[in-house]
């Protein structure tokens, strides 16, 4: 009958259950014993499920399917609105076009978002350059050397930092960071540098908490073996613990990059928003306009092809972020795979 479904419990219990079955007691009692079976396992004994139970399960299934439905609708609507321009201009010309001039007074409007794609990556990578070393150091600190009081303070601080709305960070950047950069480094103040710093502050907690988890999940024996061989604690961290936690850390970094590219408000308020490449390209004091800012700034008055071009920007943004997320998840999964 159903004995092959018995996965849970020890052998003795299984044997006992089998005995019940063989004694041919009332079916319902057998069922009770099967309640030991993990619930994910379908019990195929003939039970007449009540209609109400069926309806409830259906409702639960529908709410679970909502998330998929929303994702599908998002893709459909982005395509519906954005494809117009993507087809008209051509995907390649749209992504690699240098000129964004949606409201041409004379002549044809042009929709090229290459400078914005570059800007999105530029600002995000800039934020990683700041946040990764700092975040990793904090994670190592948390996992390895922090006394418990420091750990609890820092942990709470990180939770707080996650909670600060991005518009507030943008505002602080606007009133403090932008003038500071203008006065001390020159330029306009609204710049790649300002955007990167603000994004770094936002990325920090994410990098810290995922890396902290990754470091803590390195088997204790690795560390003990290394220490027993006479390595110092720091040497152990650098040569044993960090390499073992590498995939988790990589996942954290890529995830942080995805969120940075998708971040809107904080960047928008400090980055200057001129839709051209910085000149020269390495000038981090130049203002740029990431894809997110482009959508947000122009959506309120865009119509026709212009609006469609903004949706198309959304499509590109969506794809970039989705790809990064998938890479990050794969990195995390492979970590899970190699352990145990």
């Amino acid at each position: 009958m159903c004995t092959d479904h018995l996965r849970g419990g020890g052998d003795i219990e299984n044997a006992e259950t089998n005995r019940y079955i063989s004694e041919d007691v009332d079916q319902r009692f057998i069922l009770l014993d099967f309640a030991r079976v993990p619930l994910t396992c379908k019990i195929t004994v003939d039970v007449r499920m009540k209609t109400s139970e069926r309806i409830i399960e259906l409702l639960l299934f529908l709410s679970a399917a909502t998330a998929v439905l929303i994702v599908a609708l998002i893709i459909i609507f982005l395509l519906k609105e954005g494809l117009l321009v993507l087809v008209k201009v051509g995907i390649v010309d749209f992504c690699l076009g240098m000129k964004w001039n949606p409201i041409a007074i004379a002549g044809e409007p042009s929709y090229g978002i290459f400078p914005m794609i570059v800007a999105s990556f530029y600002v995000a990578i800039g934020s990683l350059i700041i946040a990764v070393p700092l975040g990793l150091a904090c994670a190592v600190f948390l996992a390895e050397i922090a006394p418990s009081w420091a750990r609890s303070i820092l942990k709470h601080a990180i939770e707080l930092l996650v909670g600060i709305p991005s518009v507030i960070l943008g505002f602080v950047g606007l009133v403090l960071l932008v003038p500071f950069i203008r006065d001390h480094f020159g330029g306009w103040g609204f710049s790649i540098l300002a955007g990167s710093i603000i994004l770094a502050i936002m990325a920090l907690p994410r990098i810290i908490s995922i890396s902290d988890d990754a470091i803590r999940s390195v088997p204790r024996e690795y560390k003990e073996a290394s220490l027993a061989l006479g390595a110092t604690h720091w040497h152990t961290i650098r040569k044993v613990i960090l390499p073992s936690a590498r995939s988790g850390i990589v996942a954290a970094v890529i995830l942080a990059m995805a969120t940075s590219i998708g971040e809107t408000m904080a960047v928008l308020m400090v980055v200057g928003n001129t839709p051209i490449l910085p000149a020269p390209i390495y000038d981090i004091l130049d203002p740029v306009r990431p894809m997110t800012s482009n959508i947000l700034l122009e959506m309120s008055y865009a119509t026709g092809d212009h609006a469609s071009a903004l949706f198309a920007t959304g499509i590109v943004l969506f794809i970039v972020v989705a790809v990064l997320n998938v890479i990050s998840h794969t990195a995390l999964k492979s970590k899970m795979g190699t352990r145990r």
């Binding site: 679970a64 998330a67 609507f77 998708g262 971040e263 809107t264 947000l296 989705a322 997320n325």
Partner: peptide, 25 residues
């Protein structure tokens, strides 16, 4: 698996894209 993947996907979508979708839909 599709449902779990959908949940993960939705979590990763940038807020501005959700805003765009909210506007269109």
């Amino acid at each position: 698996r599709i449902i779990s993947f959908g949940v993960e996907c939705l979590a990763g979508i940038p807020s501005i894209v959700i805003g765009l979708f909210g506007y269109a839909f």
